[in-house]
Amino acid sequence: MEPAKRYDIGDAARYLDVAPSTLRYWESEGLVRTERNPENDYRQYSLHSLIDASEIAFYRKLGVSVKELKGYHDLTIEALDDTLERTATDLARRIAELDSMKLQLEKQQELNAIAKDLAEHGARFSAPAVTQLRALDYRMPEIWQLLVSEPWRYGILIEAAHPETIVEALADTDLPDASPLWKKTPDAAHRPCLECLLRVSLDASESTASSLFEEARRQGIRPSRLVGSYLLSATEPSGGQRYDYYRAWIIGESRT
């Protein structure tokens, strides 16, 4: 009968999809057992050792800590079942978190696409997608969680008579304590509105609101105000200054 094959640490690490240093660390912590080649004292792994190490690699990928795995080899079937159940519960929680992160990522990709399209094609006639703006009161604790998880809910309102004044707002939220600032009227589809990309400096000391109001006037709109919702923050390719970008609509009173 031929002697059982042994694998060196490089082969073992490749089969397990881990670094050789990881295998050495697991061995030092008692998680993996190895043999030594009598000719050169190099580590070598039997097939059984690889199978045993594969279980450690599996649990580590699931997020089970090295500290928790130190007693792995002493677990009974019942204890192992308890460990698997706890790991399954934790994995379900992590999957839910990843699903939520994926949705937020897809939303941000959508917002980036809107910003790129508006930057490339410029202003266009379009009814506002934002339906209402409410006053942003930083004393309201619930707004922090809202804006951290859904930053596109951060809105702004700028009156055409005062383009230098930016009023912070909450876009399309129903927080009961937030005072209404603006609401989309039923006849919005028939009013002259210009969709555009608004750029605001990070300290809100300057914006492109004045030039956007002028553009609206050139297109025959008598602007009353600008409403918008946050898209993203990015650095300009020329000049290197960073700005906040908003999907905005110039609301017109009538055509001039």
Rank of each mutant, 00 (worst) to 15 (best):
R6Q: 07
Y15G: 03
Y15S: 04
L16D: 00
V18A: 00
S21C: 09
R24L: 13
W26I: 09
W26C: 14
E29S: 08
G30A: 09
G30L: 13
T34H: 10
T34E: 08
N37D: 12
P38L: 12
D41T: 04
D41E: 11
Q44T: 03
Y45A: 00
S46M: 06
L47T: 13
H48G: 06
S54H: 12
I56S: 00
A57R: 13
Y59R: 03
K61H: 15
K61E: 15
K61M: 15
G63V: 07
V66D: 04
K67L: 10
E68K: 05
Y72W: 10
Y72V: 01
D74P: 06
L75K: 09
L75V: 12
I77A: 04
A79F: 06
L80V: 02
D82V: 09
L84S: 03
L84T: 02
L84V: 02
T89Q: 15
A96P: 03
D99N: 09
S100I: 07
K107I: 11
Q109L: 15
L111V: 10
E120G: 09
H121S: 13
A123F: 07
R124M: 10
F125E: 12
F125I: 14
A127N: 04
A127C: 09
T131G: 11
R134A: 12
A135K: 11
E142H: 04
E142S: 08
L147I: 05
V148L: 14
S149I: 12
S149V: 15
W152P: 04
Y154E: 01
I158C: 06
H162F: 09
I166F: 10
P176F: 11
P176N: 00
P176M: 02
P176S: 01
D177S: 14
S179N: 03
K184F: 12
T185W: 08
D187S: 09
A189L: 11
H190Y: 15
L194V: 05
E195P: 07
D203A: 05
A204I: 02
S205C: 07
T208Y: 03
T208N: 00
A209N: 13
L212F: 02
E214K: 02
E214V: 01
E215H: 07
A216R: 00
Q219C: 05
P223Y: 09
L226K: 00
G228I: 11
Y230D: 01
Y230S: 00
E236L: 11
G239P: 05
G239C: 06
G240A: 00
Q241P: 00
R242S: 09
R242Y: 07
Y243S: 11
Y243T: 08
D244K: 02
Y245T: 08
Y246C: 06
I251S: 00
I251C: 07
G252D: 06
E253F: 05
S254E: 15
R255V: 08
